[in-house]
Simulated scan of single mutants.
Amino acid sequence: MMPLSMRRALLRATAAVMASACFSVPALATDTLRVSAIPDESPTELQRKFAPLGKYLEARLGMPVKFVPVTDYAAVVEALGSGKVDLAWLGGFTYVQAKLRTGGKAMPLVQREQDARFTSKFITARDDIKTFADLKGKRFAFGSPSSTSGHLMPRYFLGKEGINPDVDFANVAFSGAHDATAAFVAAGKVDAGALNASVWDKLVEQGKVDTDKVHVFATTPPYFDYNWTVRGDLDPALQAKIKAAFLALDPAKPADKAILDLQRAKRFIPTEPANYDGIESAARAAGLLK
């Protein structure tokens, strides 16, 4: 009879092989499309923006769609990488992180037209901040550490202007979200901050920021940013249907326009991994990727 120690070793080895086999088999189908998004705005705003889009996707795909909220940017990347969500709204930097986390399998499908030429705004409530040089010795707020438009690209372009935030600023804060950065600046918690142009425009339109007090003093050059990304082992046919659903949204149709307006999109266009090579290069240059 096989010794107990050998039987246990064999069972452990068999279990490991079975586990490896399970993980190597592509998850080609899903009964419910699980969707998430980087928390670049408040949780209630994210839910409000997604609700009609979720209903639209259910109708187009013929399957339930569930929104899965997360607490931070890293959680979205991990959820996509571990197969806990199927589709995620990512920034350019979080897409790069997801690509690296999944060995290149995470696939960006579509982006808004403006995401091909996205920008960040530098804002302040101080009259003595008019240029990047005026930021030296001041308190500054970024959004999330993993935010493309709230941290990576502002930091990268600050570097192009000869500003090292970790050396030149009196203090660096991370607000966690773009709307929170605007609130930090308005409340005087920091002297200046960076957030994405889309959220800034929305806050201004909704009267949630006093432009007599808080104003833009600089704008970054354009770069690729947000996209909808799927986990790479999702059924290719379902991937194609998801992509087609986004591309079919027509601003000439009132119901579609309502969805697009919430996404702050005129329409969605196809995207591809190569569009984010510049983001990856910027992240490595800024020391945010090893």
Score class of each variant (00 low, 15 high):
L46K: 00
L90P: 01
I123L: 05
A19T: 14
K84A: 04
E78A: 00
M153S: 03
T229K: 07
T148P: 05
A255I: 09
A265L: 05
R112E: 15
S281E: 15
Y95N: 07
S20C: 14
A21S: 14
A133F: 04
E41H: 14
T32H: 02
T102I: 08
V185P: 03
H151D: 15
G207F: 15
R101W: 00
L158M: 10
S146F: 12
P145E: 07
V70I: 14
T124S: 10
L195C: 01
T229M: 09
D31A: 15
D210Q: 07
G176S: 00
I279C: 04
R267W: 02
A182E: 03
W228P: 08
F224K: 06
F246R: 00
A37V: 09
K130G: 13
K253E: 05
L234I: 14
A197I: 11
A258P: 10
A133N: 06
D235I: 09
A15N: 09
A88V: 03
D277L: 13
T32K: 02
L158N: 00
D191S: 03
I269W: 13
D233Q: 12
A265M: 04
D250R: 10
E58K: 09
A133I: 02
D179M: 13
A255P: 09
A15V: 12
P273H: 07
A13L: 15
D166T: 03
P251E: 08
S146K: 10
V68F: 13
L288S: 05
V25M: 09
P43V: 10
A274I: 13
T181S: 03
T219G: 08
E41W: 15
V204H: 10
I259D: 07
K202H: 04
S36A: 09
T229E: 07
K202S: 04
N227G: 04
A286P: 00
A125P: 06
L90D: 01
D86K: 12
K130M: 11
A59F: 06
D127H: 12
T229S: 08
L53W: 13
T229C: 09
D72G: 03
A183C: 11
A37I: 09
G176I: 01
L90W: 03
T30P: 00
L57F: 03
S20M: 13
R126S: 14
K202C: 01
A29N: 02
Q263V: 06
T71D: 14
G143I: 02
A265S: 10
L80Q: 02
T71K: 09
L11K: 04
V204G: 10
A197E: 01
K49H: 06
S24K: 05
T102N: 11
M107P: 00
T44R: 03
V25H: 04
L249Y: 03
